[in-house]
Design a binder for these strands. Structure first.
Length: 827
RNA sequence: GCCGAAGUGGCGGAAGAGGUAGACGCGGCAGUCUCAAAAACUGUUGGAGAGCAAUCUCCGUGUCGGUUCGAGUCCGACCUUCGGCACCA
């Protein structure tokens, strides 16, 4: 009696064995090509749900495949363990974030092991442990030394719910917190920033890396480079030192059309310039705009409003005196915080001018313009008019001509502005790596000396969020001495953005236990950059962006010798449940554990790959996974149930007539086997897991037919089964290992070489030739693969079915596609 | 509004480089097994129509046009869905 497929039993058995044998531990090896295949590490939020598995399982399959192909594969896993969600969850449960996080890690590790991955657990990293964050702090110091970290007072995004500041990248949907969806407000605070804008241009380039176009576009848009000019407007106000206001514009060609100027309400000159009689009105407007949330203020729906501040500037090109207004559609954080308004050629300025009855002066003529008024702003290129000596120039040339002119006069210069802001990394929360800085009354800001790292996060701080950093009230943490003058001093009490931890973790995997440096340079040189990085697309302008910045900064410090951390990037889609995204709040979270204990990890792995193309994501469906489970059971039975050839081997040889038949069947089996190897290999390279599984199923179905017929010799049969198991090994590692053992092979299937296909054996001997008449399918004929054009046409014309369509018709054209079809065009 | 991706049976999805639309799986239907059911296995399954029948005909990849001997695939316009950005001067 054949044993039943029992995934629970065999999966536990092999997981134990693989761990005992350290089967998946890797070291540097120059005799094989290396492959660093990385999946974004998991955030320690509690349980892994099926969405995590969707990110992890297919990449494990790919890594296993590469390993069998002979690559030295590094496929590590770790935990992104600092940060707000863990802290909030811990507060809610009344336990310490460290306890909460480490419990989660234990559970997640157990779940990850149950998946049957090839993670080398000896390389695990956990970002909230001092041996890790020591080096996060070390990188902060390096960035500070390099002038890439600075402290500044600035208007920053504050989330009232999370009680902390956020980076620009963490503010989404026009002004809500990326984590909790609360509308952010502006606060002026002194904070630590990383000078990511220094790398703005380089971050827009993705040369030599294979990334999805979508992500590259998002990153380019995020940097938002605008080329134009900075133009100075003369300011002549008694009692004010400033003699100009500078504006940034991408359209210097419209400079003769300026009819007013708009400043951001926060512009430093507003207070000085406002005339006494306008003061009350202006202050009321500023108060009002400050009270508004970022969403309201930036809403494109909202009608633009503003107030005249009672001051004028002079457009030096025309000599015109133009009024100065303030309006909250002008942002202090972009350009110079001041805009020259050209209502004729800018939609916003046009709306503003209409509302307040300001003049509209046309300076760019649309093609065919007859001198009439515009019904709306004309923002396209055109011909310059009303622009003095520049009249008649096409606007593209006009931009250059005006820039040259302004530069000659010293009234302005060519300029580039970016939408990208510097990365704000301070957080007023407990659960993060402390920023290693000290404030001394005498010496000012002093970095913590390297040898004093790590600055330990005190365990006993009261970590409830108050809007101020909890560390501020932890006396033994705050009070220290100045490393320079030894006088009493105070520590920085803000912690670092978690994205700082994840900006370098992929370097740590190369030498996770290195305690003299964040990484062993030689090992990083061997493993990095990451060859294939997979994860969700939601990190396009956060993690993926920051990590690129980090590597470029490290490169410029001479710490690494490459410029891009991730050579190839792949974003998997999202698993949905009942047409909705999985989330705890919706209560539709699918946990893998129950499916693993019922159907096995192999079934869950295979189902996730089969459900849809990986980049697309798909719907979790219970009846779908039972189909996969049935298939794995069929494989089990197919392999283990005795194969009964129709006649014994030696008898076959005697039966001449039969033998021809058997040879033919065996040739077909061999052809299909080699075609399957080719298909499965190609699909795995391209990460097309769904069609790979379909090919394995087809192969299984075909083998079942062969088995039923008993039409091949046992040795040929066994070879085919071996290949099936090898092809199945990455997808269903436990089942394949068990069947490998039960069919009498040596442990382990995962150390076997990936099967190679033979192009000759995979070649079809016969092909189906499609015969069309006027493009419509009329017959299909089986022909030898190497058929000539003349023969193919001859056979097509001989077809009885085709003949019926050719009766009384004239053949105009005969089209032949080798090995595919004949199309007869008749009239 | 702008940028990007995608619309194929009852469902998830397949279709190198313009050449058999619907692989593979789910579900359905029929059968085998069973006292019965479940499970499993076998067969069948895009729609409409004709025929006792094996078969045959027509229609069919979001909509409307176009290119081509031939279009799910290429081009143009539009509709819908999903992501991202959104007063960036």
């Amino acid at each position: 009696m054949l044993a039943k497929y029992n995934p629970q039993e065999i999966e536990k058995k092999w997981q134990r064995r693989w761990a005992e044998d350290r089967l998946y531990e890797v070291t540097e090896d120059d005799t094989r090509p290396k492959l660093y295949a990385l999946t974004m590490f998991a955030y320690t939020s509690g349980d892994l749900h099926i969405g995590h598995w969707y990110a992890l399982a297919p990449s494990d399959v790919h890594a296993r495949f590469k390993r069998m192909q002979g690559y030295n594969v590094l496929h590590p896993m770790g935990f992104d363990a600092f940060g707000l969600p863990a802290e909030n969850a811990a507060i809610k449960r009344g336990i310490h974030p460290f306890t909460w996080t480490m419990q989660n890690i234990d559970n997640m590790r157990r779940q990850l092991r149950s998946m049957g991955t090839i993670y080398d657990w000896s390389r695990e990293v956990v970002t909230c442990l001092p041996e890790y964050y020591k080096w996060t702090q070390w990188f902060f110091l390096k960035l500070y030394e390099a002038g890439l970290a600075y402290r500044a007072k600035a208007p920053v995004n504050w989330c009232p719910r999370c009680q902390t500041v956020l980076a620009n990248e963490q503010v989404v949907g026009g002004g809500v917190c990326e984590r909790c969806g609360t509308a952010v407000i502006r606060r002026d605070l002194a904070q630590w920033f990383f000078r990511i804008t220094k790398y703005a241009d380089e971050l827009m380039q993705h040369d030599g890396i294979d990334w999805p176009e979508r992500i590259k576009i998002m990153q380019r848009n995020w940097v938002g480079k605008s080329v134009g000019a900075e133009i100075s407007f003369a300011l002549d106000c008694p009692g004010i030192d400033e003699k100009e206001i500078r504006v940034f514009t991408t359209r210097p060609d419209t400079a003769f059309g300026v009819t007013f100027m708009v400043l951001a309400p926060e512009h430093p000159l507003v207070a000085k310039l406002t005339s006494p009689e306008k003061k009350a009105e202006v202050e009321a407007y500023i108060t009002r705009s400050r009270r508004q949330s970022e969403i309201e203020r930036l809403s494109t729906e909202k009608e633009k409003d503003g107030v005249f501040i009672g001051a004028y500037v002079v457009n030096r090109l025309t000599g015109d005196k133009v009024p100065v207004w303030i309006a909250d559609y002008v942002l202090m954080s972009y350009g110079t915080g001041a805009v020259m308004a050209v209502p004729a050629h800018d939609e916003r300025d046009y709306a503003f001018a209409k509302k307040y009855n300001l003049p509209i002066k046309l300076v760019i003529a649309p093609p065919g313009w007859q001198g009439g008024k515009l019904a709306e702003a004309y923002t396209e290129p055109g011909t310059m008019v009303n622009s003095g000596q520049f009249d008649g120039l096409p606007s593209q040339q006009g931009i250059e001509a005006i820039c040259d002119f302004l530069e000659g006069k010293g009234w302005g210069k060519r300029a580039i502005t970016y939408r990208l802001r510097d990365w704000l990394i301070s957080r007023q929360r407990y659960w993060g790596a402390p920023i290693p800085m000290i404030y001394c009354e005498k010496c000012g800001i002093v970095p913590v000396p390297e040898e004093d790292l790590p600055v330990l996060l005190p365990e006993n701080a009261d970590f409830k969020p108050t809007g101020e950093s909890p560390l501020k009230y932890c006396e033994e943490f705050v009070n220290t001495t100045c490393p320079r003058c030894s006088a009493p001093a105070k520590r920085e009490t803000d912690t670092m953005d978690t994205f700082m931890c994840s900006s370098w973790y992929f370097l740590r995997y190369a030498s996770p236990h290195c305690d003299t440096a964040p990484f062993d340079a030689e090992k990083v040189k061997y493993w990095l950059p990451v060859d294939l990085y997979t994860g969700g697309a939601e990190h396009a302008v956060m993690h993926l962006f920051y990590a690129r910045f980090f590597i470029k900064a490290l490169r410029d410090m001479g710490l690494v010798s490459f410029s891009e951390p991730f050579s190839r990037l792949f974003n998997q889609g999202v698993i949905i449940v009942e047409k909705q995204k999985m989330s705890k709040s919706r209560g539709n979270v699918i946990t893998p554990d129950e499916y693993v204990s019922e159907l096995g990890a192999d079934a869950v792995r295979a189902y996730l790959m089969f459900v849809a193309p990986w980049e697309q994501g798909g719907e979790w469906d219970d009846s779908g996974i039972s189909g996969i489970s049935r298939w794995l059971n069929r494989v089990w039975n197919l392999v283990l149930e005795e194969y009964k050839p129709r006649t014994p081997d030696h008898a076959l040889e005697k039966l001449k007539g039969e033998q021809a038949d058997i040879e033919q069947v065996e040739r077909e089996l061999s052809r299909i086997t080699h075609q399957t190897i080719r298909k499965v290999t190609g699909d795995l390279e391209k990460l097309r897991f769904n069609t790979m599984i379909a090919a394995l199923m087809e192969f299984t179905n075909y083998l079942a037919k062969v088995k039923e017929a008993g039409s091949v010799t046992p040795s040929v049969w066994n070879e085919s089964i071996d290949i099936l198991l090898l092809l199945l090994a990455p997808t269903a590692p436990h089942l394949a290992e068990e069947l490998w053992e039960r069919t009498g092979h040596n442990y382990s299937i995962h150390n076997q070489s990936w099967p190679q296909w033979d192009e000759e054996l995979a070649k079809d001997e016969e092909v189906t030739l499609v015969v069309q008449v006027n493009g419509k399918l009329r017959d299909k004929i089986i022909v030898p693969a190497g058929i000539t054009e003349a023969e193919a046409k001859k056979l097509a014309l001989e077809s009885q079915r085709v003949k019926a369509y050719l009766k009384d018709k004239v053949t105009l054209k005969e089209i032949y596609v080798p090995g595919k079809l004949v199309n007869l065009v008749v009239r």
